[in-house]
Protein backbone atom coordinates (compact mmCIF):
# COMPACT_ATOMS: atom_id res chain seq x y z
CA UNK A 1 0.00 0.00 0.00
CA UNK A 2 2.99 2.29 -0.13
CA UNK A 3 2.85 5.33 -2.30
CA UNK A 4 3.14 4.93 -6.04
CA UNK A 5 5.57 7.79 -6.35
CA UNK A 6 8.52 5.79 -5.06
CA UNK A 7 10.90 5.02 -7.89
CA UNK A 8 11.47 1.35 -8.35
CA UNK A 9 14.86 -0.12 -7.67
CA UNK A 10 16.62 -3.28 -8.62
CA UNK A 11 19.65 -5.04 -7.25
CA UNK A 12 22.68 -5.40 -9.48
CA UNK A 13 23.22 -8.94 -10.77
CA UNK A 14 26.03 -9.58 -8.27
CA UNK A 15 23.97 -8.31 -5.38
CA UNK A 16 21.05 -10.35 -6.59
CA UNK A 17 23.26 -13.43 -6.55
CA UNK A 18 24.43 -12.67 -3.04
CA UNK A 19 20.84 -12.30 -1.96
CA UNK A 20 19.86 -15.63 -3.50
CA UNK A 21 22.81 -17.27 -1.80
CA UNK A 22 21.77 -15.81 1.53
CA UNK A 23 18.26 -17.15 1.06
CA UNK A 24 19.76 -20.60 1.02
CA UNK A 25 21.58 -20.00 4.30
CA UNK A 26 18.45 -19.56 6.43
CA UNK A 27 15.38 -21.74 6.81
CA UNK A 28 13.17 -18.71 6.36
CA UNK A 29 13.45 -15.90 3.92
CA UNK A 30 12.51 -13.33 6.49
CA UNK A 31 15.81 -13.99 8.25
CA UNK A 32 17.61 -12.55 5.24
CA UNK A 33 16.17 -9.12 5.96
CA UNK A 34 19.09 -7.73 7.97
CA UNK A 35 21.78 -8.92 5.55
CA UNK A 36 19.66 -7.76 2.62
CA UNK A 37 19.45 -4.30 4.12
CA UNK A 38 23.24 -4.25 4.24
CA UNK A 39 23.32 -5.14 0.56
CA UNK A 40 20.86 -2.38 -0.22
CA UNK A 41 22.86 0.06 1.88
CA UNK A 42 25.97 -0.82 -0.11
CA UNK A 43 24.28 -0.79 -3.51
CA UNK A 44 22.45 2.49 -3.14
CA UNK A 45 24.62 4.29 -0.60
CA UNK A 46 21.94 4.36 2.06
CA UNK A 47 18.58 2.95 3.00
CA UNK A 48 15.75 5.18 1.90
CA UNK A 49 12.08 4.68 1.18
CA UNK A 50 12.75 3.06 -2.18
CA UNK A 51 15.33 0.77 -0.61
CA UNK A 52 12.86 -0.32 2.03
CA UNK A 53 10.25 -0.97 -0.64
CA UNK A 54 12.76 -3.12 -2.48
CA UNK A 55 13.55 -5.08 0.66
CA UNK A 56 9.85 -5.58 1.32
CA UNK A 57 9.33 -6.89 -2.16
CA UNK A 58 12.32 -9.23 -2.11
CA UNK A 59 11.50 -10.68 1.29
CA UNK A 60 7.75 -10.69 0.74
CA UNK A 61 6.66 -8.63 3.73
CA UNK A 62 4.94 -5.29 4.10
CA UNK A 63 6.89 -2.09 3.66
CA UNK A 64 5.76 -1.12 7.13
CA UNK A 65 7.56 -4.10 8.60
CA UNK A 66 10.76 -3.19 6.87
CA UNK A 67 10.49 0.31 8.26
CA UNK A 68 9.85 -1.14 11.69
CA UNK A 69 13.05 -3.15 11.52
CA UNK A 70 15.21 -0.47 9.92
CA UNK A 71 14.20 2.11 12.48
CA UNK A 72 14.95 -0.22 15.39
CA UNK A 73 18.62 -0.38 14.51
CA UNK A 74 20.89 2.63 14.61
CA UNK A 75 23.73 1.54 12.38
CA UNK A 76 22.11 1.50 8.96
CA UNK A 77 22.95 4.52 6.89
CA UNK A 78 19.76 6.40 6.14
CA UNK A 79 18.96 8.96 3.50
CA UNK A 80 18.99 11.63 6.18
CA UNK A 81 22.64 10.86 6.96
CA UNK A 82 25.68 12.47 5.44
CA UNK A 83 27.80 10.71 2.83
CA UNK A 84 30.03 9.49 5.67
CA UNK A 85 28.93 8.85 9.20
CA UNK A 86 31.34 9.55 12.02
CA UNK A 87 30.58 7.54 15.11
CA UNK A 88 32.39 8.85 18.15
CA UNK A 89 32.19 6.72 21.23
CA UNK A 90 30.93 8.49 24.32
CA UNK A 91 30.10 5.73 26.75
CA UNK A 92 31.64 5.73 30.21
CA UNK A 93 34.97 3.93 29.59
CA UNK A 94 35.67 6.29 26.70
CA UNK A 95 34.27 9.26 28.59
CA UNK A 96 36.83 8.57 31.30
CA UNK A 97 39.57 8.76 28.72
CA UNK A 98 38.97 11.76 26.56
CA UNK A 99 35.84 11.07 24.58
CA UNK A 100 34.46 14.44 25.44
CA UNK A 101 37.51 16.30 24.18
CA UNK A 102 37.45 14.33 20.96
CA UNK A 103 33.75 14.96 20.50
CA UNK A 104 34.22 18.67 21.15
CA UNK A 105 37.05 18.78 18.65
CA UNK A 106 34.94 17.05 16.02
CA UNK A 107 32.04 19.37 16.64
CA UNK A 108 34.35 22.35 16.23
CA UNK A 109 36.02 21.04 13.10
CA UNK A 110 32.79 20.10 11.40
CA UNK A 111 30.76 22.98 12.69
CA UNK A 112 27.90 20.76 13.75
CA UNK A 113 26.65 19.23 16.96
CA UNK A 114 26.39 15.52 17.53
CA UNK A 115 23.36 14.19 15.74
CA UNK A 116 23.68 16.72 12.93
CA UNK A 117 24.89 16.65 9.34
CA UNK A 118 27.35 19.09 7.85
CA UNK A 119 25.90 21.65 5.50
CA UNK A 120 27.68 20.13 2.51
CA UNK A 121 26.16 16.75 3.36
CA UNK A 122 29.59 15.16 3.63
CA UNK A 123 29.50 14.07 7.25
CA UNK A 124 27.02 13.14 9.90
CA UNK A 125 28.40 13.21 13.41
CA UNK A 126 26.86 10.76 15.84
CA UNK A 127 27.53 9.55 19.31
CA UNK A 128 28.22 5.86 19.38
CA UNK A 129 27.54 3.61 22.31
CA UNK A 130 30.53 1.66 23.62
CA UNK A 131 32.35 0.47 20.49
CA UNK A 132 34.09 -2.33 22.40
CA UNK A 133 37.30 -0.44 22.02
CA UNK A 134 37.62 0.97 25.52
CA UNK A 135 41.30 0.04 25.60
CA UNK A 136 42.05 2.48 22.80
CA UNK A 137 39.83 5.35 23.84
CA UNK A 138 39.13 7.88 22.60
CA UNK A 139 37.99 6.10 19.50
CA UNK A 140 35.72 6.65 16.58
CA UNK A 141 34.53 5.01 13.40
CA UNK A 142 33.93 6.55 10.03
CA UNK A 143 31.65 4.17 8.19
CA UNK A 144 33.57 0.90 8.22
CA UNK A 145 36.92 2.33 9.34
CA UNK A 146 37.89 2.26 12.97
CA UNK A 147 40.26 4.78 14.56
CA UNK A 148 41.97 4.25 17.90
CA UNK A 149 43.61 6.72 20.26
CA UNK A 150 42.38 9.61 18.19
CA UNK A 151 43.91 12.98 18.97
CA UNK A 152 42.69 16.33 17.86
CA UNK A 153 45.87 16.81 15.81
CA UNK A 154 45.07 13.76 13.67
CA UNK A 155 41.58 14.85 12.81
CA UNK A 156 42.35 17.01 9.76
CA UNK A 157 44.37 14.29 8.18
CA UNK A 158 41.75 11.62 8.91
CA UNK A 159 38.80 13.69 7.74
CA UNK A 160 40.64 14.58 4.53
CA UNK A 161 40.48 10.92 3.52
CA UNK A 162 36.72 11.20 3.13
CA UNK A 163 35.93 13.26 0.09
Amino acid sequence: MSAETVDKRELSPEARKEFEWLCGRYPRRRAVLLPLLRIIEREFGCIDEAGMALAAELIGISAAEVKSVVSFYTHYKRDTDGKYVIWVCNTLPCALRGARELTDALERKLGVRCGQRTADGRFSLKKAECLASCDTAPCMQIDDDHYDHVTEQQLDEILARYE
Binding site: R28, R30, A31, V32, L33, L34, P35, L37, R38, I59, V69, F72, Y73, T74, H75, Y76, E129
Partner: peptide, 20 residues
Protein backbone atom coordinates in the same frame (compact mmCIF):
# COMPACT_ATOMS: atom_id res chain seq x y z
CA UNK B 1 25.84 -9.02 11.05
CA UNK B 2 23.85 -6.90 13.46
CA UNK B 3 22.97 -3.30 12.84
CA UNK B 4 23.36 -1.37 16.04
CA UNK B 5 21.36 -2.45 19.08
CA UNK B 6 22.77 -3.47 22.44
CA UNK B 7 19.71 -5.52 23.23
CA UNK B 8 20.65 -7.97 20.49
CA UNK B 9 23.26 -9.22 22.95
CA UNK B 10 20.49 -10.57 25.12
CA UNK B 11 20.18 -14.09 23.83
CA UNK B 12 16.57 -14.05 22.73
CA UNK B 13 16.88 -10.51 21.39
CA UNK B 14 19.69 -11.87 19.28
CA UNK B 15 17.47 -14.69 18.04
CA UNK B 16 14.76 -12.19 17.05
CA UNK B 17 17.37 -10.23 15.18
CA UNK B 18 18.64 -13.29 13.32
CA UNK B 19 15.05 -14.08 12.41
CA UNK B 20 14.89 -10.72 10.68
Amino acid sequence: RGAGAYICGEETGMLSSIEG
